[in-house]
Design a protein around this nucleic acid. Sequence first.
DNA 1: TCATTGTAAATTGTTAACAGCTATTTTAGT
DNA 2: ACTAAAATAGCTGTTAACAATTTACAATGA
Lengths: 202, 202
Amino acid sequence: MRASDKIVPIREQIAEKLRSDIISGDLAPDTKLNEQHLAARFGVSRGPIRDVLLQLTKEGLLVRKTNVGASVNKTLDPSMQQLMIDIRRRIEFHAARQLKGKLTEDDFEALEGMLNRFKESFEKEDYTDVTKADIDFHKYLVEKAGGEELVNLWYVVVLRMRMNYKRIDTPIAGVAEHRAIIDALRKGQTREAVAALRENIR
Amino acid sequence: MRASDKIVPIREQIAEKLRSDIISGDLAPDTKLNEQHLAARFGVSRGPIRDVLLQLTKEGLLVRKTNVGASVNKTLDPSMQQLMIDIRRRIEFHAARQLKGKLTEDDFEALEGMLNRFKESFEKEDYTDVTKADIDFHKYLVEKAGGEELVNLWYVVVLRMRMNYKRIDTPIAGVAEHRAIIDALRKGQTREAVAALRENIR
DNA sequence: TCATTGTAAATTGTTAACAGCTATTTTAGT
DNA sequence: ACTAAAATAGCTGTTAACAATTTACAATGA
């Protein structure tokens, strides 16, 4: 089975679209999400929609009140934001340490590809895709180190952090920072990789 | 509305029962959870059951494969376990710092009550309830400091950690450790509270 | 005028039937 | 006896109808 043959459940596609809308700010905090409207919009029944709303609630992007419904969560206050940054760093530092000597040439090729996508999207001023490429880059490392389990935990933290940033906030410096991360990992320099990650995660 | 009047959705009661079964080891890793059987057991249809399975999957207690079903997740390997401990400490240290000077006499009374329940359950050798009292104690602090949002993140980490322990692993030393946490918080000694928490979380 | 009660519309929660997929078993062929 | 294709049983995914709850609004009375 080729990677391109991987089928993505409808539910996951809808979740991805809604996550993107929330992170990008198209759906502002306190926006109410109506199950019927969403069902009509995506051409499915309310069942899968409810699944998605439950998932995004667990991810912290939505809040749900019984018999009332789901709405977009508020942004984090500064002290919570700092805690999220701290936790995200812990996870990615852990990943960097675990990955020492474990990355193949294929892995580095994939990382280079995502860095290129980051740079190109930035030049095209497609900041939504910049954010996605950025997240994909880090996600790749976390996935490689801790599998789906660790990604799930990490993802909650990242998404919640991202809600606090305007999309245009992703700086061009990210290219050089990601470059430094790749180079350190390639040389097996764990300390340098961790330092580069600390720079990049803020 | 009094606190005792709070109604708990069926879905949440079922989730609580299953979480307890998994943490206690009654449901071993790789045990398959059949939706129809669960629906029959709890006297509801498959709808709410699916909600619960989705939630527990997001919490990391279950793993789901599309068109196949949900089964109990494996325990964490040592390196992941250490990361979880690390993250849990970060969250609870954060809580202790935030709570300095914020706790009322009612709060301390509630904490004392949970500590008593911990001790009494231990004497009765009801280790399932010991675990619950332990979790409730810490949960109270996290909730007070960071609200439902922080509890959700924290809970994932705690539940996953707990899967790695046999229920009888909770030591009697926990009583003294919790005592130290309460005392430090009462005196507003943040450093001591953090130290006591570090002792207790392992 | 304001508060309260009653009613209707809208929305979420739940159920049961049906569709589609997976995995096991049966069957046919060598 | 062994392999592979095909039928089958069991389960999950999806749907649409129904039930229960909330919310908004209008009617009522002090």
